[in-house]
């Protein structure tokens, strides 16, 4: 019987050189949960995602994941433990086709529900475009590839940074519509969003970040709009 708590972060400080971007972040996620992390531009959301996967230097942090300690370990090892990050701006491999991008995501061959077939069932439009260069896709389709590429690793937890940023509303709706199928397959998710309403609709719990600190935490039902905007804008 695996532990119920999947991710447990305590007291995380993150730095870019001498500049401190995150201050004493504590956050946790249970198995099967979908978390939303909301906050304005440069609140530290992306830094938090990068800190979890070891792309940003952290100090004093305890990052326990599925019972093991992640802090200070190199990114490629953290990823092997079962965390996948969909980076801000999608960042598909330009010289690879759609299917090659997905195969690269799955090269670790962890066992789990996700395979090329499962991804194509989740986002059918990608099946038609599987042999096209990834650069020929629309922004929304690229985001589908980026999410699919992360899922191909069969992670226990997928982090999606700025899911809807720069995408057309109709595609955003399609992607959000697919998310429950991701969590239903047993993959927990943390979604970083500036667009609060979309995130609140799918999340079990919400964290709000401002100035590198957590300013609010709770279930969507328990939070009033005033409380959220106070935490979000600091007014």
């Amino acid at each position: 019987m695996p532990e119920k708590r999947l991710l447990d972060i305590r007291n995380l400080d993150a730095f870019y050189g001498a500049f401190q971007a995150l201050f004493g972040i504590s956050l946790h996620a249970e198995r099967g949960e979908t978390l939303a992390i909301i906050g304005a531009n440069s609140a530290g959301k992306s830094t938090l995602m990068k800190a979890i996967v070891g792309l940003v230097t952290t100090r004093n942090a305890e990052i326990r994941f599925a019972g093991g300690e992640l802090a200070g370990r190199p990114t490629q090892q953290i990823v092997r433990e079962g965390i996948a990050l969909v980076p801000e701006g999608r960042r598909l491999f330009r010289s690879l086709s759609v299917e090659e991008n997905l195969l690269v995501g799955g090269h670790l061959h962890r066992s789990g529900p996700w395979s090329l077939m499962a991804i194509y069932d989740l986002f059918p439009v990608l099946r038609e475009k599987r042999h096209q260069p990834s650069t020929s896709l629309s922004g929304g389709q690229q985001q589908m590839v980026a999410i699919g590429r992360a899922l191909m690793a069969n992670p226990d937890l997928v982090l999606i940074d700025e899911l809807s940023l720069g995408l057309a509303p109709i595609v955003i709706r399609d992607i959000y519509a697919a998310l429950p199928r991701v969590t239903a397959a047993g993959t927990s998710a943390i979604i970083v969003e500036q667009d609060t309403s979309q995130a609140l609709a799918v999340a079990n719990r919400v964290y709000c970040l401002r100035g590198g600190r957590i300013t609010l935490e709770g279930t969507p039902a328990s939070l009033t709009r005033d409380a959220i905007s106070a935490a979000y804008f600091g007014v």
């Binding site: 990823v79 090269h107 690793a153």
Partner: peptide, 23 residues
Amino acid sequence: LPIGRALRATSDDPEVARLMGYD
């Protein structure tokens, strides 16, 4: 070949390649 795909991916974006678990 998979190794060629890995090399091309790393060439495109070394940071994201690490996110895929490549060393």
